[in-house]
């Protein structure tokens, strides 16, 4: 069962503020998702190898070659806040 505290923790990890109204809305939704996973979990998988990737591709590499980088003008074009060619962001510690 998912409780209010867990939901608040998930909100914090996702940097989303949740008020009581949000919690009342999302709690049953997330619970139904978890119920579905419980159903999946009930399948016996003891002898099944884990699937990490569905295509079965292996060992895909590129050579260590340099390709041109983007122009800084283009890089910073869509940046909302910048200072001296840096991207400016709020301080989080």
């Amino acid at each position: 069962m998912i409780d209010k505290k867990t939901l608040e923790h998930i909100g914090k990890l996702a940097k989303i503020e949740l008020d009581d109204k949000d919690i009342d809305e999302f709690l049953p939704q997330l619970q139904s998702i978890l119920d579905l996973f419980d159903e999946i979990n009930s399948v016996e998988t003891e002898t099944v190898e884990p699937t990490f990737h569905v295509f079965g591709l292996k060992n895909v590499f590129r050579e260590d070659d340099v390709k041109p980088s983007l122009d800084r003008e283009d890089v910073l074009k869509n940046v909302p806040k910048k200072e001296k060619d840096y991207v400016k962001s709020p301080k989080i510690l």
Binding site: E83, K84, V87, S89, P90
Partner: peptide, 12 residues
């Protein structure tokens, strides 16, 4: 310095 600055500048 980390204690004084009000924001963060990022160099990617």
């Amino acid at each position: 310095g980390m204690g004084h600055s009000k924001y963060t500048l990022v160099d990617y």
